[in-house]
Amino acid sequence: MAKRMVLLVGTNKGVFLYTSDAERKEWSLKGPYLPGWEAYSVLGDSRHGNRIFAGTSHAAYGATIRVSEDFGETWTQIEQGPSYSPESGFRLNRIWQLAQGHPSEPDTLFAGAEEAGLFVTRDRGATWRELDGLTKHPTRPGWYPGAGGMCLHTILIDLRNPKRMWVAMSAVGVFRTEDGGETWTPRNQGLARVPTGQPQEEVGYCVHKMVLDPFDPDTLYMQEHGGVFKSTDGGDSWFTIEDGVTLRENDAPFGFPISVAPNGDLFLVPLESSEQRAVAEGKLLVYGMHRGESRWSPIGDVMPDEPRHVSVLRDAMTVDAFDPYGLYFGTTSGEVYASLDRGRNWNRLPGQLSRILCVKPWLVED
């Protein structure tokens, strides 16, 4: 059975699809689909046919989830999608993340939203319900947004145990559940708390992105507003892993994305600073670290002959599941880059898109 690689790209002006064969040398581009809509999250789901889910938002029409069963040519809005009750006082501004459920739950999907909340469907996306154990958490009165809003942007599931999950929210922190999302506990010890006035010490941590180690579900990695962190006890405690990546003396490294490969390799794109929020000196450098190592190394300038004063957003960097794996990222200026050799050499994919919000790989079997 032939395999295709589809790279799903969400932008602030619609969804685009890059397609290639298993070699991933030549790419074709289609789109925009859903033009004019922000797409902060996209997901390719092949568990019941080939379906694309997109979390879309619009200044006039609000936040919705759309689904396509013909590779983006037509879309249907899910009528009973995520929503908050009127009495909650919360507003559904964006769908920041879409994630498949545990492999033992093929009909399950999760959606992370802004204002921070988690929703689940058990019927392949037809109907959704709020997991209000998180929304009604006792610390909720002390939750405050980061600069991009109070967004639930990361959803991770323990492959050994479908009841164990983690979510990350800006500028709230990490929460873990052991019962499938009914109850939640903050897991932020050791992180760099941000001064946003939260009265509860358990929350107030501006997590930018978090990933789970592919071999050990007790090991997690994080790019946070105050640095790069690792946990080896399921998030109970965190410590910094910043050697080699500090760009300015005495400053913690600042950036948004962090990605993990199937073999445990880690990647991030550091920025000049929280104030600048662009790559330093116009050099679009990706940093990498092999699993088990403790020091980051710059892999090389993606475009050494041209300055790039851009940023890479939290969900705009990803790794596919091929061997060798492909590493991809999109910039705020609408460029998409791909590497098949752990970032040593890069190809710019065709087209100039608008501001790239997310990049997600999807392996399709024909």
Rank of each mutant, 00 (worst) to 15 (best):
D158P: 04
S85M: 06
R122L: 09
L159C: 02
S83H: 14
D107S: 15
T154Q: 07
G89I: 10
E79K: 09
C151G: 12
L191Q: 03
D107E: 13
E130A: 06
V194F: 01
R176A: 11
E130Q: 10
G81K: 07
F110R: 06
R129D: 12
A111T: 08
D179V: 04
G133C: 02
P162A: 11
I78F: 00
V172F: 02
Q77D: 11
A147D: 13
A126P: 00
N188C: 07
I157F: 06
A168P: 09
S104C: 04
L191S: 13
P195Y: 05
F90T: 08
T183Q: 04
L118A: 13
F119I: 11
R129Q: 13
A113I: 10
G180D: 06
N93H: 13
I155G: 04
D123V: 15
Q80E: 14
T127F: 11
F175T: 02
V194D: 05
T177V: 14
R124Q: 14
N161M: 08
R187A: 14
Q80M: 09
K136A: 03
T121G: 05
L98G: 07
R129M: 11
F110E: 07
P145L: 00
E79D: 11
T121A: 11
L134A: 07
T76C: 00
L92P: 08
G101L: 07
F119R: 06
L118E: 03
A126D: 05
Q97W: 05
D107N: 12
R193Q: 15
G190W: 08
S104T: 05
E115P: 03
P186L: 05
E114K: 00
D123P: 13
